[in-house]
Design a protein around this nucleic acid. Structure first.
Length: 748
DNA sequence: GAGCACTGC
């Protein structure tokens, strides 16, 4: 059914054409919420449906991340943020709606709420949550579960003795959901409905429903171990199995039991805790089993059918296959944009070039095919471009990483091309080394990608692999907790009173060696003592919202009197990179960076850049001219502000500066990173001091290609080599001073 | 000579 592109002399890729192979986001299952609704939704789209869909997070658009807070509900915190001295994007002047207008809107929305398919299940949901301690709810995309269920529980009186909280893995989602639900409830954001994310908390004591990131919930656990302010905790997007939701599973489960025990013992001031797990994938048995065989409820969604087309033959080069497929779609299929999932920036940029080259040969009767790259490292202005509609008669082809799988929803996608691969972070627990490698996706990822074609109309999903290959994919991705460094999580567990994290009630247990590696490193950082108990240092470290080695650097900076510089460098290292490097202007970008370069390496180069940024008050034009990512830089300033507050709270002076004696800052960093050091070898390579691993300085480092006696690095990730990033030069004599226990004999 | 995506009272 697919014709070749004559002028482009390309091979043709044949896809199977099995009519049975139609899926409307998956599966026929028992559904408590009117399964017939799903079929009718394919034909026409009611206004209510559109409304329900718009309640889903729609983009990472910066404007959404930085909402215009209503002037009547400004918290002290928000007021402080508004006075931020750095150049932020202009906020759109938003005339505050009147109370009458808000109520009228809510009344209007009520009709739409009642037209949602989930509404038919309202009473059952309320009944189940009232009668059971734990409930698992499976809701397909567009079911409205995340906006409606908290409101049902509120209307049923479940917020009488505490707030209903809904955790989210992503900030934008928490913001958008809270705004939407506030509208439906009919009060300004921050009153009955609020959200809480890092740097931005609109919730108040009176909030009845609170959307928050899972990270915030984990932080709250440190000060409120029984989470007494909450009556219901809804853990949303549970299927994503992020490290933080996995930790929360175990935490809320034990809190629920503790509270029940206290009530049993006659404590009248304690209320029971309800747990609701919400997931988008169907195999919810695992969640159910973990939560005492909790009842599972299924809610159907509002997806259009997507036809799956697998290739007949395995493809040896998926970038090339994606190129051919894109042109096949463009020439053969009805209007609608194409979304291609690739693994990284390099692939995206090479496919972009290829598409531009081949588009030249398109016959004049065929409209243009416009490639639009999107990945996380772009600056926000570039990211916004994919939301601009294609000119009439042309077609956009979006080249995306996994960012388009969950984080960004792009409108008008009718065709998905799935390469079947992604880049995934791994962790070898035995040697304690992280990796970032291309790997096959899971079946649930493939379904998620497919679903991106059926949000607005029926779509097609072209899988660049055979049906057999699909069958061999894992059902789900390996949960993050089994493939990442656990230091931070372990320190949090210790700080919330869990003495033996190896005995924690994990839904999926991390490997013993991974746990031990983390415990060992925490011991080396003096966060744990010989018996494995949390030390005073460890307690202080756990309070800081940074990884343990950075927390150690902050504590050390007090002794070395360079807290100001430590805070600043740690803030700068909290983003991937502050430098923006569009590959098309690489030369210019490198030249601009020379101005800030320190011969000592990346830490002091970052500090120089921050000074320059401050001297122009974060001017956005200056950022553009100097290839500084202003979005990342503003994040750096937010982190700095927060770390200053945390240091003050810990009784430290965040203004203590070492002035021009910057060598002391590097020595200070060694307190957290003495294990991340390497020595120059006679053959000009670097060998890590502990472990003797040959490491290579990443090309993005200022020390790339330089030969220094000894170096320290923040990060080691295996890709094509063991690359180290965040590198600075040392004198080897500093090592024995920084960690005599480890280097005392060697350099005495 | 090159890094997927998230997140922190």
């Amino acid at each position: 059914m697919f014709n070749s592109i004559k002028s482009a002399k390309r091979k043709v890729i044949t896809f199977d054409d099995d009519e049975e192979n139609i899926s409307s986001q998956g599966h026929d299952t028992q559904s408590t919420a009117a399964p017939a609704e799903q079929k009718s939704s394919k034909a026409t789209k009611t206004k209510a449906q559109k409304e329900s869909e718009s309640s889903e997070p729609t983009s990472t658009a910066e404007s959404q991340e930085e909402p215009t807070p209503s002037t009547t509900t400004l918290t002290k915190k928000q007021k402080r943020q508004q006075q931020h001295q750095y150049d932020r994007p202009k906020k759109i002047a938003n005339k505050e709606p009147t109370t009458e207008a808000i109520i009228a809107k809510a009344k209007d929305l009520k009709k739409h709420r009642e037209a949602l398919p989930i509404y038919t299940a309202r009473d059952i949901i309320i009944k189940e949550v009232k009668e059971n301690a734990c409930v698992v709810i499976v809701g397909e995309t567009g079911s409205g579960k995340t906006t409606q269920i908290p409101q049902y529980l509120l209307e049923a009186g479940l917020a009488a003795h505490g707030t209903i909280s809904v955790t989210q893995p992503r900030r934008v989602a928490a913001i958008n959901l809270a705004k939407r639900v506030a509208e439906e409830v009919g009060t300004p954001i921050g009153q009955k409905v609020g959200y809480s994310i890092r740097f931005d908390d609109t919730s108040s004591k009176d909030s009845l429903i609170k959307y928050m990131t899972d990270g915030i919930m984990l932080r709250e656990l440190l000060s409120d171990r029984l989470l007494l302010r909450y009556s219901v905790i809804i853990l949303d997007e549970a299927h994503e199995r992020t490290l933080r939701t996995d930790i929360l599973f175990g935490m809320v489960k034990s809190i629920q039991k503790k509270r029940a025990d206290m009530i049993q013992a006659g404590r009248r001031d304690i209320q029971p805790l309800k747990i609701v797990i919400m997931s988008a994938t169907l195999d919810a048995e695992k969640f159910s089993e973990y939560f005492y065989n909790a009842k599972i409820m299924y809610i159907s969604g509002r997806m259009f059918p997507v036809k799956i087309l697998n290739t007949v033959e395995p493809q040896s080069d998926y970038v090339d296959s994606a190129l051919v497929t894109a042109f096949q779609i463009h020439q053969d299929e009805a209007p609608g944009d194409i979304l291609i999932f690739l693994t990284g920036q390099e692939e995206i940029e090479s496919l972009e070039k290829l598409i531009e080259e081949y588009a030249v040969d398109l016959p004049p009767t065929v409209g243009k095919l416009i490639p639009c790259p999107i990945f996380a490292a772009q600056d926000s202005a570039t990211q916004q471009k994919i939301f601009e509609p294609a000119p009439h008669g042309t077609r956009k082809v979006i080249l995306a990483t996994n960012i388009a799988e969950t984080s960004i929803t792009i409108p008008n996608i009718r065709y998905v091309v799935d390469t079947g691969c992604h880049k995934s972070r791994g962790y070898n627990a035995k040697i304690g080394i992280e990796s970032l490698l291309v790997e096959p996706i899971s079946k649930s990822s493939a379904r998620q990608r497919m679903g991106r074609a059926g949000r607005e109309a029926p779509g097609l999903c072209f899988r660049l692999y055979t049906e057999d290959s699909f069958d061999q994919l894992d059902e789900d991705s390996i949960p993050e907790i089994k493939r990442c460094n656990l230091e931070s999580a372990i320190l949090s567990l210790k700080a919330t009173g869990i003495e033996d994290p190896t005995k924690f009630d994990f839904m999926d247990r991390p490997s013993k060696s991974g746990l031990l590696k983390s415990l060992e490193h925490l011991y080396a950082l003096e966060a744990l003592d010989d018996t494995g108990a949390l030390t005073e240092i460890g307690k202080k470290m756990a309070a800081f919202p940074v990884d343990p080695p950075y927390a150690k650097v902050l504590l050390q900076s007090e002794k070395m009197e360079c807290t100001k510089e430590a805070i600043e460098i740690i803030s700068l290292l909290s983003v991937d990179t502050i430098f923006s490097a569009p590959s098309s202007k690489r030369e210019e970008a490198n030249e601009a960076r020379q101005k800030f370069m320190s011969l000592d390496g990346d830490h002091l180069t970052l500090l120089n850049t921050l000074r320059a940024y401050e001297s122009v008050k974060g001017d956005r034009d200056w950022c553009r001219e100097n290839f500084i990512n202003s979005r990342h830089m503003r994040h750096v300033m937010d982190v700095r502000k927060q770390l200053i507050e945390f240091c003050e709270r810990a009784g430290m002076d965040p203004r203590k500066s070492c002035g021009h004696d910057l060598e002391i800052v590097l020595k200070c960093f060694l307190a957290g990173f003495f294990q991340n050091t390497a020595l120059l070898q006679p053959d000009s390579t670097y060998k890590s001091i502990l472990g003797g691993l040959t490491v290579s300085i990443h090309p993005s480092s200022t020390l790339f290609g330089k030969k220094r006696e000894a170096i320290m690095y923040n990060e080691l990730v295996f890709t094509t080599k063991h690359y180290i990033r965040g590198v600075s030069a040392l004198e080897s004599a500093w090592l024995s001073q920084a960690a005599p226990k480890y280097f005392g004999n060697r350099h005495a």
